[in-house]
């Protein structure tokens, strides 16, 4: 019987092979990106920009992302993650830039909340050498609710009100949970304790 991880590995390999094959033909690659990933990209950009941008702006942004992927297809490094991970990161960055250009305050989290300060620099090595392994380890150790809240806040830039509404938890409890997640993350990254 084939394990889930094995299936996942096959799927990844298949995705890489398909993409490598498509790269040989510009038109084919562009069509492949549009047909396969436009929904995925749209959903990320739409999720981050939420009601702060018009549908037209979001569609413009999605088309820019597809063009950028198409142009930079040679630079995609599958050793760093799957194609979907790369597309998600590109989409998120572009969506944030779109928000910046609209001068909306959405997504930009308060420094006090977003920035973690370290007196030494023990995590520099962890973060650089192991990419996002450390953060994934951290997330895997959080309980489901805390993980959801953490991702909603720091990946999607959701407001407390939105998180509260989505999860049916009081805003002030969300605030407390975010506060404690930050402490846990800092301790985790400095090796002072597990979650």
């Amino acid at each position: 019987m084939i394990g889930v991880s094995k299936i996942f590995e096959y799927e990844q390999k298949e995705e890489i092979l398909k993409f490598e094959h498509m790269k040989k033909d510009d038109n084919e690659l562009l069509n492949y990106l549009i047909n396969t990933y436009s929904s995925y990209i749209f959903s990320i950009v739409n999720r981050i920009c939420d009601k702060s941008c018009s549908v037209e702006d979001i569609e413009e942004c999605v088309s820019d992302i597809i063009i950028s992927l198409w142009r930079n297809s040679e630079k995609i490094d599958f050793n760093k993650g799957t194609l979907k991970t790369y597309i998600a990161a590109t989409s998120r960055n572009t969506a944030i830039n779109l928000l910046k250009s609209t001068k909306t305050r959405k997504f930009f989290l308060p420094i006090k909340e977003d920035v973690l300060s370290f007196s030494d620099d023990p995590i520099d090595t962890i973060l650089k050498k192991e990419n996002n392994e450390a953060i994934l380890d951290f997330l895997s150790q959080l309980n489901e609710i805390d993980r959801k809240i953490f991702i909603k806040r720091f990946y999607f830039g959701d407001s407390y009100k939105k998180i509260s509404k989505d999860l049916n938890i009081k805003v002030r409890i969300i605030e407390g949970k975010i506060y404690r997640c930050r402490i846990k993350l800092k301790k985790f990254l400095t090796g002072e304790g597990s979650v």
């Binding site: 760093k80 993650g81 991970t85 998600a88 990161a89 998120r92 960055n93 989290l109 909340e113 977003d114 920035v115 973690l116 973060l127 990419n131 996002n132 953060i135 994934l136 997330l139 991702i151 720091f154 990946y155 830039g157 930050r182 993350l185």
Partner: peptide, 8 residues
């Protein structure tokens, strides 16, 4: 933190 999670 918002940078740390960028490659989820």
């Amino acid at each position: 933190i918002s940078d740390m999670v960028k490659d989820l």
